[in-house]
Each structure stands twice: as structure tokens, then as C-alpha cells.
């Protein structure tokens, strides 16, 4: 079922709303809390996020990617293990590869996905599938070189919650 807040609006929609000029960290935090409370949260949420990451609206995709990162850091082992499967990673690959959606995805979204995948290979070296997917993307020339991780990504997860502006 959809994760709903008091307003009845999907919490996933709220956390990734492209009409917001900035990421709403409290909405993301609420979303992560709901994922942790809902028994189906960890297994259903990755797919909800994958769908938004594949959105033609750049902002929605970018916000969804941030939510994904935060969920991996804050929603526990079950969420993490869903995301570490090829079944999920393939959804990110589809956004990058010109064979699927890559031709009409913006460089900004692709760059973020590459950054996220790379950071996961650094922080979760035990996740062989993440490493394999990343290596294959490099081999195919879809990823040209390892991205430079921004300063706030140098600390391993769980990352602290950013303060809402």
C-alpha cells in the first residue's frame, strides 16, 4: 500500500515533489520513518523510488535519488538488501544506458546516479552485485571514470540528517 501521511497524500510524493525549489529534509525524514514503521516498507519502497528516479522531470528524479540515498543510510538491512540486488540496480542502469532510457535522461541525473553507485561501491564493498554493476557500466563505457565524491560523502554512512533551511 502507499505510505500516507496525515494529509492522505503519499509521503513519497511529498518527499520528491518537483514543485519544491529545495529538497524538503523533514519530508524525507518522515518518509524514512514511515518506511521503518511499515512492515512492507523496505520491500516496496525501492520500487516506488525507482519509478520516480525514471521520471522525465529532472527535479523529481534528483529528489528521488536523494531520498534513495537517505533510505539506504537510515532504513536498515532489509531496505539495503533490496537495493543491493540486480533487480533494483537494473532500474538505475536503465536510466544510464542508451539502450533503455539513457538517451533522454539529463546529464545531471546520470551524474547523480553514478555518484551514488560509486559511493556504494566504496562504503559497501561486501555488496558484490553493486560492484559488478558498476564495473560493467565502466566496461561498457557508460561510466567513463570514477566520480569525485563531494566532501559530505567522504564520511561513511549513516550520514547525519542535513538541517532544513
Amino acid at each position: 500500500g502507499r505510505l500516507k501521511g496525515k494529509s492522505g497524500r503519499g509521503l513519497g510524493d511529498k518527499a520528491t515533489d518537483p514543485s519544491m525549489s529545495e529538497q524538503d529534509w523533514s519530508a524525507i525524514q518522515n518518509f524514512c520513518d514511515q518506511v521503518n514503521t511499515d512492515p512492507n516498507g523496505p520491500t516496496h519502497t525501492p520500487w516506488l523510488l525507482a519509478h520516480k528516479i525514471q521520471s522525465p522531470q529532472e527535479k523529481e528524479a534528483l529528489y528521488a535519488l536523494t531520498v534513495l540515498e537517505m533510505c539506504v543510510n537510515h532504513c536498515g538491512e532489509k531496505f539495503h538488501s533490496e537495493v543491493a540486488k540486480f533487480r533494483f540496480l537494473n532500474e538505475l542502469i536503465k536510466v544510464l544506458s542508451p539502450k533503455y532510457l539513457g538517451s533522454w535522461t539529463t546529464e545531471k541525473v546520470k551524474g547523480r546516479i553514478i555518484e551514488i553507485l560509486y559511493s556504494w561501491t566504496v562504503w559497501f564493498p561486501e555488496d558484490i552485485k553493486i560492484r559488478d554493476a558498476y564495473q560493467m557500466l565502466k566496461k561498457q563505457g557508460i561510466i567513463k571514470q570514477d566520480p569525485k565524491l563531494p566532501v559530505d560523502k567522504i564520511l561513511p554512512p549513516p550520514s547525519p540528517w542535513p538541517k532544513s533551511s
Partner: peptide, 15 residues
């Protein structure tokens, strides 16, 4: 057993 077959079916997309 369900988990094992899920693992077997988990493949990387051809790129």
C-alpha cells in the same frame, strides 16, 4: 527455498 530461487533469477541487465 524461495529465497534461493530469487537469487538464481537475479540477473544484471544487458547494457
Amino acid at each position: 527455498l524461495g529465497e534461493e530461487s530469487e537469487e538464481r533469477d537475479d540477473h544484471l541487465l544487458p547494457m
